[in-house]
Nucleic acid binder design. Structure first.
Lengths: 292, 292
DNA sequence: CATATTACCTGACTAAAGTCCGCTAAAATA
DNA sequence: TATTTTAGCGGACTTTAGTCAGGTAATATG
């Protein structure tokens, strides 16, 4: 490389700082200081805990309180005490607030669109680059949560998973995932489980579990987005789904895979999975089991 | 893609905003408000125009003036009137200021290093992603300047160029560029020219010219960094070097290239270059000429 | 049940950033 | 040469962000 990586990172930092600064000032076009705009953008129509806002923005209790009072007097939000703990308060967007929020959204959306347009024919590459960097920066904040296997996000994960398989296993065509997924029920509690890993609202991985018999379950559809690899996410997903299987009273896990998926195979081998008899057909050519 | 590109860009924006904010607060460790620290970082030991600083940071004239006075009274900078226009002023780092700057540099360097370390085995990919994004954001600020063909930056361009050629032309091994480059003299004024395109201090492209006879010159070593492609930079470089050849009194230009370099070829064909007799050997297999 | 803790609020205060205006001196322009 | 414009300076002022202490009501804890 012509210039050392650290110098390049700092160049990136400068470029992006300028961009972010411009974004900040563009939010000022609505006659409201930035701090208050930021608070407003965290208040949801369904209501947001005041403590959560304070936590997210790392604001002083007194300062936030004044912001809320100010937004309230503008008629953008309402606050009410949390019935579950009457010391806590919940802030809720009023219809007027929702209109105002939509205006902020439009500013952000517009800027994003214009920036992306500049990328021209390389848009896909640029988006992939942004994914890689954002995932790296968000790394400590990845959350794994159960999800319904037939939601849009779950389906997006599975589509990406099938695409990946088709690329890596020669001659494979899995076809398309039908809508609705006829197998969804077996991945849904109480029978099975479906987990999605989230990085700031972007799904970056999934794994699922379905029962074979009362004591045996099968792990399926382990997928990690390209930009999220090499960060131990697959391992975390596997640990979590294995833990769930254990909690469900399963004693044995099985999975089938293909020898072309070398990285997944290495993970399985390193975490206690052992070869077993074939129990499915192609494209699987390796069958593993693990006792819980 | 599981999520639409604009949402992904905004996720990137959020991730990066947090990071930039953290960098800013880390600059506060030296007992100086951020605004002043930012000004200090733009003052160079050789001197920087005050107007340039104001322009870069978009500061009010009065505010900047106070910052400068404050930095001056700390003994970090000196200001003097610009001899060329005695209304203007130039700020210069004192030795004490250079020490202080070095401390800020160290903070930034350290943060960058730690961030990069997090990328682990994917460091190269992450750096490439950052280059792509930074180049996109800096696009309007690319500067093309003449350079000596035997400086470190020029050599870095040429090394990248040779690597690229070796990748794209099967069976080619150009060997290494000797130090010092024995051909450098012919690319140096008054005989020839060497141009480098800069994006915020990172060389992202080059082109050169050397004389064949008093009226004919040869364009050589046209290179654009991968992350800077599809933005018309090659065209700008060619326009500029052709203009220089014209100014030198040349009437004919020549170049040789290889049919594997389809994108370069398309550019040449689209800008008035026509096929001509072979005048060099392999790896060239196409020879072009253009009348000025 | 007494006491401690927590969540939020209010008011007083400070630091930093930014705006506005008038001034001077130099340069550009008519 | 008279004028207008430009670059920078400094003072008065406002806005924004942030800190801190004290207070109230609800909840948690021994």
């Amino acid at each position: 490389m012509p210039l050392d990586p650290i110098a390049r990172l700092r160049r990136f930092n400068r470029a992006v700082t300028r961009e972010v600064g411009a974004l900040d000032t563009s939010f000022l076009g609505r006659g409201r200081p930035l701090g208050m705009a930021r608070v407003l953008q965290l208040v949801r129509p369904e209501g947001t805990d005041v403590a959560r806002i304070r936590d997210r923005l790392d604001l002083d209790s007194g300062l936030l309180s004044r912001f809320l009072r100010s937004l309230e007097s503008e008629g953008l939000i309402q606050t009410e005490t949390d019935p579950a703990d009457r010391r806590r308060r919940i802030a809720r967007l009023t219809p007027k607030g929702q209109t105002e929020m939509a205006a902020y959204e439009a500013i952000g959306f517009d800027r994003a669109k214009r920036l992306l347009a500049r990328a021209g024919s390389r848009t896909d590459e640029v988006v992939a680059a942004m994914d890689l960097i954002a995932t790296l920066l968000n790394r400590d904040q990845v959350e794994i949560r159960p999800a319904d296997p037939d939601t849009a996000e779950a389906r997006a994960c599975l589509t990406a998973y099938f695409t990946e398989l088709a690329q890596r296993i020669p001659g494979l065509d899995m076809g398309k995932l039908p809508v609705p997924d006829p197998e969804a029920a077996s991945y849904r509690p109480p029978h099975g489980r479906f987990l999605i890993a989230w990085s700031d609202d972007l799904p970056i991985g999934c794994v699922s579990l379905r029962p074979l018999d009362p004591e045996t379950a099968e792990v399926k559809r382990l997928w990690v987005a390209d930009h999220a690899r090499s960060q131990g996410l697959a391992r975390r997903l596997m640990q979590m789904i294995e833990g769930m299987a254990r909690d469900m009273g399963m004693t044995t896990l099985k999975l089938d895979t293909n020898s072309a998926l070398t990285d997944a195979l290495a993970l399985y081998r390193a975490t206690g999975w052992r070869q077993t008899e074939p129990y499915t057909g192609p494209p699987a050519d390796i069958w593993l089991t693990k006792a819980l």
